[in-house]
Structure formats: structure tokens, C-alpha cells
């Protein structure tokens, strides 16, 4: 019946590479002390990964929600990667910021998550944390606001330098991401 099962049409730009689509939304955040929030996000991949289309970083709108238990961003994400290997599977890193009534921004939390490797639609919750600082800094933060921030965002998604940090839990980010895979079966890679 299927004489053409092994002669599928592949797009000419990436005839032999496996492809990953990541499509969905950063829905919003809950569990933070204040809910006038926005989010900076980015996707980090290994060297074998090539972005074919889409953007891999951005910033959401600032939501001042009517009812104060969740901020909604409904921020769309749409990325198309080609890859030669599984190393460096995409990681999404997030920074949640609070904007006060004067328009000042302060860091509320960092977080990262691996993009799920199972194809399909995933509802995800990503818990966040922020650096605590010394006790002098904490007292200063009580009165002035602000607080310590990381100098380099690689600490968010890397594990090698984390042991220097003391952190405290903050709220969580809600996401819905759909992963579509192509040509993985061709190489015997089992993702589901």
C-alpha cells in the first residue's frame, strides 16, 4: 500500500536534519507578592542547533490585573529549530519583574525549564527564585526596594556556579507549549 513511505517530501533547506517546532504561550504568573508583572524570556540551545525561523527572546506586556491573584501575559512563542544532535536541547529561561505605580522595575524571580522532549501539548508550571543577598542588603531592600540581580543570565540555566548563591522561592510562571518533532524516527531517536 505505502510505496512512498520512505520517500517523504522534505523541505530542501534541511534535507537530513531533525526538526523541532516549539509553539505556545507564556500564559502568566501567580503566587508573587504583587501581580503587576512582566517577563523577559529567552531560549538557549547547544551548538548543534540552528534556528530556522522565529525569535528566541523577548519581553511580555506589563499586566496590572483587575483581580490580584494572577498576571496574564498571553505571550505567543513560535520557534523552528533544526538539529544534528540531542545535546543542548532547548532551555527556556525566564525573568519575572515587578513594575510599581511609579514605573520602577524590580526583579521578582528567575527560572528555567527544559522544553519537553515529548511531542504534544504541555501545560507547564515553572517555579521561580531570586537571590537573597546579605542581611544588610535584605534590610536595605525592605526599605528601599530593589534587590540583588544576577550579572550573567547563564547562571539561570547553568548549574556549574549555582553553589555560590543563596536564594529564596518566589511565585510560578504558567506556560502552555506544544512540541512538534520531525524526522526523529528516521534516526531511531525515540521521544515518546
Amino acid at each position: 500500500m505505502n510505496s512512498h513511505t520512505h520517500e517523504l517530501h522534505y523541505s530542501p533547506t534541511c534535507a537530513v536534519m531533525a526538526e523541532v517546532h516549539i509553539i505556545g504561550q507564556i500564559i502568566g504568573a501567580s503566587g508573587f507578592p504583587q501581580h503587576s508583572l512582566f517577563c523577559k524570556w529567552g531560549v538557549h540551545t547547544g551548538g548543534a542547533w540552528k534556528l530556522l525561523s522565529g525569535v528566541v527572546e523577548g519581553q511580555t506586556q506589563v499586566d496590572h490585573p483587575q483581580n490580584d491573584d494572577m498576571a496574564f501575559w498571553s505571550h505567543p512563542i513560535d520557534m523552528h529549530f533544526a538539529t544534528k544532535g540531542l545535546q543542548g536541547w532547548p532551555k527556556l529561561h525566564l525573568q519575572v519583574w515587578h513594575q510599581d505605580t511609579f514605573g520602577r522595575n524590580e526583579l521578582y524571580g528567575y527560572s528555567f525549564l527544559h522544553i519537553p522532549s515529548t511531542p504534544g501539548t504541555h501545560s507547564l508550571l515553572s517555579p521561580t527564585w531570586r537571590p537573597l543577598g546579605t542581611w544588610q542588603e535584605q534590610i536595605c531592600q525592605m526599605f528601599v526596594g530593589g534587590g540583588p540581580q544576577l550579572k550573567s543570565s547563564s547562571l539561570i540555566y547553568g548549574g556549574s556556579d549555582r553553589y555560590r548563591l543563596q536564594t529564596v522561592a518566589m511565585g510560578q510562571v504558567h506556560l502552555q507549549l506544544t512540541v512538534i518533532l520531525r524526522n526523529f524516527e528516521r534516526y531511531g531517536v525515540e521521544c515518546s
Binding site: 517546532h21 504534544g120 512538534i180
Partner: peptide
């Protein structure tokens, strides 16, 4: 066309 979208709405919701 080779696309695997998984099946079911939320496999590990």
C-alpha cells in the same frame, strides 16, 4: 509529512 505532534491533549498535564 513527517511531523509528530504527539496525541491526546495533555499527555503529562
Amino acid at each position: 509529512l513527517g511531523y509528530n505532534t504527539g496525541s491526546g491533549d495533555f499527555p503529562n498535564a
